[in-house]
Simulated scan of single mutants.
Amino acid sequence: MNKALHTALSALAVACTLTLSLAGFAQAATGTLTIGFQQINNPSGCYNSPIVPLIVNNQTDATAIIFDATNCGGYAIGTVAPGQAGTFEFGRSVSIP
Rank of each mutant, 00 (worst) to 15 (best):
G74T: 04
L5C: 05
G86V: 02
V14G: 08
G24R: 14
K3S: 08
T63H: 13
L12N: 09
I77F: 02
S95F: 13
D61Y: 06
I51G: 02
G86D: 01
L22V: 04
G45N: 07
F25N: 15
K3T: 15
D61I: 05
Q39N: 13
A26R: 08
A13C: 10
N48K: 09
S21F: 09
G24Y: 02
I66S: 00
F37D: 14
S49E: 02
G86Q: 01
N48Q: 13
D68G: 06
C46W: 03
I77M: 04
Y75M: 11
V14N: 07
N48V: 08
P43E: 09
N41F: 14
Q84W: 12
N2V: 11
I77V: 06
A26P: 04
F67Y: 07
T60C: 09
T70E: 07
S49Q: 02
N42E: 07
A23Q: 04
Q84G: 07
I65F: 11
L20K: 04
N48Y: 13
S44D: 02
T7H: 08
P97D: 11
S21P: 02
A23F: 00
G86I: 02
N2H: 08
T60F: 12
P97Y: 13
T32C: 08
T30L: 06
G78C: 01
Q84T: 07
T7W: 13
L33F: 06
A76S: 11
T87R: 08
S21I: 12
T60Q: 06
T34A: 05
S21T: 14
I77Q: 03
Y47M: 07
